[in-house]
Amino acid sequence: MAGQGQRLNVVPTVTTLGVVKARLAGATRGHALLKKKSDALTVQFRAILKRIVSAKDAMGDAMRAASLSLAEALYAAGAPVRHAVQQSVSGPAALRVRAHQDNIAGVRLPRFESYLSDGGAAGGASSSSPVASLAGLAGGGQQVAACRAAHARALEVLVELASLQTSFLTLDVAIKTTNRRVNALENVVKPRLENTITYIRGELDEHEREEFFRLKKIQANKRRALEQQKEAAAHYAEEKAAGEVMLKRGVSMDTAASMLDNGDRDEDIIF
C-alpha cells in the first residue's frame, strides 16, 4: 500500500488526536459514498453499453433500409426526383435535435432527442411544406414518401446512438475519476491517518507512563525524606533524653564527649 508506514507530521497531543480522528471519520464516510457512486455509475455504464449495442444493430438495419428505399425511389421515379425534392425544400429543417441532461449520482449526462418542428412524429411522412408531399407524385410518389420516412428513421436512430455514445464517454471519465478517488482514500489517506492515530496514541501512552514513573519517584523521594526527618527527630530525642540524664548526674554531654575525646582518660571516670 502507498500509505503503509506513512503518517502525518503532527504534534502528539490529545487535541491533535481528536482532529485526526474526525478526519478519519470524514475520509471513511467519503470513501463509502464514493464507492456507492462508483457502483451506481458502473451499473448505468453497463446499461448504456447494452443500449449502444442494440442501437448499433438498429442503426445498421435503418441505414440498410434507407439505402434500399432510396434505390427503389430512384428506380420508380427516375433521376429527376432529386431535383423535385430539392426544389420542394424551403426554409429551416423540419427535423431538429434538442438536448437534455440526466443526473446520475451527481454526474450530468447529455441526452439528445429528435423531433419535428411542426409537432409531428420523427420519421413520419408529413412535412411542413405541402409541395414536399407532392414531390414525385407523377412517378413513384409512394416510394419517395417511403424513402423519406426511412431516412427520417435512420436520423432518429443516429441521434439516439450519438446520445448514448456521449453519455458512455462521459460516464467512462466519471468512473475513472471516482475510482481514482476511492483508491486514493482507501490506499493512501485512510492508512496514513490510521498510522498517525497509532503514533499519537503510542506517544500519549509513553508520556503517561513517564508521568506515572515521575510521580512514583517523587513520592519515593518524599517518603525517603520523611523517614530521614523521622530518624533525625528520633535521634534528636534520644540525644536530648541522654543529655537530661547526664545533667541530672551533674555532667553535661559536651563535657562527657570532651573527656572521652581527650587522650588522658581517667580510669575512675570511664567505667
Rank of each mutant, 00 (worst) to 15 (best):
R82K: 10
K248W: 03
E160P: 04
V182M: 08
M246F: 08
Q86Y: 15
A237T: 06
R192T: 09
L109G: 00
D268P: 03
L34V: 06
A32K: 07
G60V: 06
G119Q: 13
A122V: 14
E206S: 11
V19Y: 07
D102R: 13
L137R: 14
H100F: 15
P92W: 10
K50H: 12
A150S: 06
P191R: 04
A162E: 05
R82D: 01
S127P: 00
V19A: 09
Q229K: 14
G139L: 13
G250Q: 10
R7A: 02
E156P: 06
N179M: 06
D266Y: 14
L164Y: 02
A220E: 10
A71L: 13
G263C: 07
E203G: 01
R214C: 09
E211I: 08
V81G: 01
S38Y: 04
F212A: 09
E160W: 04
A257L: 15
L247S: 03
G124A: 08
P92R: 15
L8R: 01
A58S: 12
L33C: 04
T16K: 05
L204A: 03
L70I: 03
A220S: 05
Q228L: 14
L8I: 10
A2P: 04
Y199C: 10
A145T: 11
A55V: 10
H207Q: 11
I197K: 01
E231S: 07
S128R: 04
L171A: 01
H151W: 15
